[in-house]
Amino acid sequence: MADPADDSWKNMVKAQPAVAEAERAPGAAPRAASFAIELTEDGLLLKIRREDGKIALVELSPDMALYLREYLTNGLASIGYIRPRS
């Protein structure tokens, strides 16, 4: 069983890579075609197949997976994909 979440989020936030303007340009970043998530002994493996056929594999700790979920949820809400509950 994984350890409970801690407050290491502060270090994760400080270590976030910046996104350059060139990386924001349409078509600059490869699109994800599909993904798979597999459980490990103490976390998750996120495997992303890109449209160009390349595969990216990332191991996520439970804390990092929670942060990613929260960032994705907030990002989707920011662009209007998730509407507030009424």
Results as ranks from 00 to 15, higher is better:
residue 32 A to D: 07
residue 3 D to Y: 11
residue 77 A to I: 05
residue 17 P to L: 05
residue 81 Y to W: 12
residue 47 K to M: 03
residue 71 Y to V: 14
residue 38 E to Y: 04
residue 85 R to C: 02
residue 68 L to C: 03
residue 26 P to D: 02
residue 20 A to H: 08
residue 63 D to P: 04
residue 52 D to Y: 03
residue 53 G to D: 02
residue 61 S to P: 01
residue 44 L to D: 01
residue 24 R to D: 08
residue 23 E to K: 10
residue 62 P to T: 01
residue 57 L to H: 03
residue 34 S to C: 06
residue 53 G to V: 00
residue 64 M to S: 06
residue 70 E to Y: 06
residue 35 F to W: 14
residue 1 M to R: 10
residue 36 A to D: 15
residue 56 A to P: 01
residue 62 P to R: 05
residue 78 S to I: 00
residue 80 G to V: 00
residue 11 N to F: 11
residue 3 D to T: 10
residue 21 E to W: 02
residue 54 K to G: 11
residue 28 A to V: 07
residue 70 E to H: 08
residue 86 S to K: 09
residue 31 R to Q: 15
residue 12 M to G: 03
residue 6 D to G: 09
residue 22 A to G: 08
residue 8 S to G: 13
residue 34 S to W: 02
residue 4 P to R: 05
residue 61 S to V: 00
residue 73 T to N: 13
residue 38 E to G: 03
residue 17 P to K: 08
residue 21 E to S: 11
residue 70 E to V: 11
residue 80 G to Y: 01
residue 47 K to H: 00
residue 75 G to I: 05
residue 76 L to M: 15
residue 11 N to W: 10
residue 84 P to N: 06
residue 23 E to P: 06
residue 64 M to N: 04
residue 83 R to Y: 07
residue 85 R to K: 10
residue 6 D to C: 03
residue 18 A to C: 11
residue 22 A to T: 15
residue 27 G to R: 01
residue 44 L to N: 01
residue 14 K to P: 04
residue 38 E to Q: 05
residue 45 L to D: 05
residue 14 K to A: 15
